[in-house]
Design a protein around this nucleic acid. Structure first.
Lengths: 148, 148
DNA sequence: TAATAATAGTTAACATGTTAATCAAATGCT
DNA sequence: AGCATTTGATTAACATGTTAACTATTATTA
C-alpha cells in the first residue's frame, strides 16, 4: 500500500474549515455590528428558540463545551442580555433565559442573518444546498457510527 | 418576506462545524500521541510537501493567519522540528524548513493519518466523498465571488 | 536623497476550543 | 445517618482565531 496523504488543498478537514470560514465571513459583519461573536449569537438564538434551559442542555444545543459556554454566559450576563435563575429542586443547576434586552437584540440581528442566508441560497442554489446538508449529515453519521 | 432563521440543528455554519469536529476526532488521537495539534501537523505537512517557504507563503498554504503561524513556528522551533534561515536579499523575511527530527516525525505520523483517511473513504464511499469535495469547493467559490 | 509608504513578521489583547482540576450539591450504598 | 460516588458547573492552563498595534526593513517618490 503506497497511498500517500492527500495534498493540502484537498484534505478533508481543511476543506471543511475553509468552507466554514467562507460561510462565516458572510455572517460575521452583521454580528460584529452588534458586538457579538458567532458563538454568543448561537447562544442567543438557542434561547430565543427555547428558553429556560440549563447550562448542560444549552451546551448540547449550541455544540459548545461547558467551559466555553460558561464564559460566554458570564459575558452575556454582564451585558444583561441573559439572566440566570436558581432551580429549587437542584441547587447546582441554574436556568438561563433571555432578558428583554436580549430578545430585543435578537429581533434586530435575526433579519440580517436571514438576508445573508437567502443570498447564499440564491447564489448557490437551494437544491445543491439540500444535497450538501444530506452529504454532511451522512458523513457525520458514518464517522460517529464508526466510534468503536 | 416572513422567512425565519433555520433551526439550529440545520444552520449551515453549525453543520460544517459539526462535520469538521467529527472528522477531526478521527485524526486527533494519532496526532496527540506525538504531542501535535492539528495546526502544527498542518505546518509540518506543508513543509514536507515543499520546503524553504517564507512565513507568508506558509500561512497561505496552511490557511493560518500570521499571528497563529508565528506562535506555531516558535513552538516547533523550540522542539527543533523546524529551522529558520535568514534571507540575504530581504532581511525582513526568513525561510522555514524541516529539521531531520521534523522529517522523522512526519514519517512516523503520516502513515497513521493515511490509515484514518482510508477508513473514512471506505465507510463513507469514495464516490460520495468526491461529490462532497465538489460541492464544498463550489460553495467556497460561490461565496468568494460574491465578495463585492 | 530624505521623507513617506508599503511589506514581513512579531506582539498584544481578547474570545474560544480543549483537557484537567476543582467545588458544591445530589445520589447511592451500607 | 454517614461516606463514597456521581453530577452540574466553574476555573485553570494552554493553543488557536482574530484584529490591531508595533518594529524593522524595503520600496517609492517628491
Amino acid at each position: 500500500m503506497t497511498k500517500t496523504l492527500r495534498s493540502f488543498e484537498r484534505s478533508l478537514p481543511m476543506t471543511l474549515l475553509q468552507t466554514r470560514e467562507a460561510v462565516m465571513k458572510k455572517f460575521i459583519p452583521s454580528l460584529k455590528a452588534y458586538d457579538l461573536t458567532s458563538q454568543q449569537w448561537r447562544v442567543i438564538r438557542a434561547l430565543e428558540h427555547e428558553s429556560n434551559l440549563d447550562m448542560s442542555t444549552l451546551a448540547l444545543r449550541c455544540h459548545l463545551l461547558m467551559p466555553s459556554l460558561s464564559r460566554i454566559i458570564n459575558h452575556l450576563d454582564k451585558r444583561k442580555l441573559i439572566e440566570r435563575q436558581a432551580v429549587d429542586s437542584d441547587q447546582r443547576r441554574s436556568i438561563i433565559l433571555l432578558t428583554e434586552q436580549g430578545l430585543a437584540l435578537f429581533e434586530k440581528v435575526a433579519p440580517k442573518s436571514v438576508e445573508r442566508y437567502v443570498e447564499i441560497e440564491e447564489k448557490y442554489g437551494v437544491r445543491k444546498l439540500e444535497l450538501l446538508y444530506e452529504l454532511l449529515d451522512d458523513l457525520i453519521k458514518t464517522l460517529e457510527e464508526e466510534d468503536s
